[in-house]
Amino acid sequence: MPAQTAAPAPARGGRVSRLSQLTVPSMPQSVASTAAKSSFSQAPSNALVPPPPVAVKKDPKLANNWKAKSAAELTDAEVIAMPDSEYMNEKQMAFFRLKLVELKRGILENAGETTEHLREDTVVVPDPADRATIEEEHALELRTRDRERKLLKKIEQSIQRIDAGDYGYCDETGEPIGVGRLLARPTATLSLEAQQRRELKQKMFGD
């Protein structure tokens, strides 16, 4: 069976993702060599990572709006339209800091609501089926709060990175993560390409 070549797709920051350039013979997905890892082509039916977000389009008409607005007044579209030369300037940093603080506030509010719900549902329910339903709902809510607790830690780390001036750059490569990716995931510490490499490694070798 002939090798299948995936069309190269531009990664954020103008780079071409190495993961999208390769050819892979028809073989199992378990690939041992480093060369094979770098030339792994994702099968549409079993993608290793979620598909990248839709390409961000800049509106030239909004390119200079950031100059006359405060960080709190800027919209996502206006931040996306900012020139690449202004990447992670003081206003962008302040914009993302506000987003992270708002996200943190929402998580803390949810945590308070969970505590209140659990306190209200402490009444003993005689019916076993009803009791099982309540316990299942509690377990689901606690799992959700546990995920949010982990996210809260990442949010606090991201705020610290902003204060240190390191926010917006990939931990592995030092290259810009990209405004579009940060808007979708403000706590991102890896570029899309680096994230794909990490998830591929975890898929092949485990955590």
Rank of each mutant, 00 (worst) to 15 (best):
R131D: 05
E199R: 10
E148F: 09
G178K: 00
L182K: 00
D130H: 07
A32M: 15
M1P: 08
A139T: 14
S38E: 13
T115H: 04
Q160N: 14
I162Q: 03
Q92E: 03
D59F: 04
P52L: 10
N110C: 01
A129I: 08
Q202R: 13
L142E: 09
S191T: 13
L74H: 02
A72P: 02
A72W: 02
A71K: 06
R97F: 07
Y87S: 09
P44V: 07
S38P: 03
T23R: 14
V125D: 05
L140G: 04
S33V: 05
E137W: 08
E172T: 01
T23H: 13
L152P: 02
R197L: 12
R12S: 11
T187C: 02
A43D: 12
A129P: 00
R105P: 00
T173H: 06
G174F: 04
I159W: 08
E156L: 10
G178H: 03
T144E: 13
Q29R: 14
V56D: 08
K153F: 08
E135C: 00
E78G: 04
V31R: 15
D163L: 09
L183S: 08
G112V: 04
A184W: 01
D76C: 09
S26A: 09
R198P: 01
W66Y: 10
E102W: 01
R185M: 03
P126A: 14
D207C: 08
R149S: 15
I80Q: 05
K99R: 14
L100S: 01
T122K: 13
E90W: 03
E135W: 09
A111P: 01
A63M: 06
R197G: 07
E90F: 07
T189M: 01
N46E: 15
R18F: 11
S45T: 06
P51E: 04
L22S: 15
E113C: 00
E199Y: 07
A94T: 05
K203P: 00
P28E: 15
E141F: 08
K153Y: 11
R147Y: 15
E172C: 02
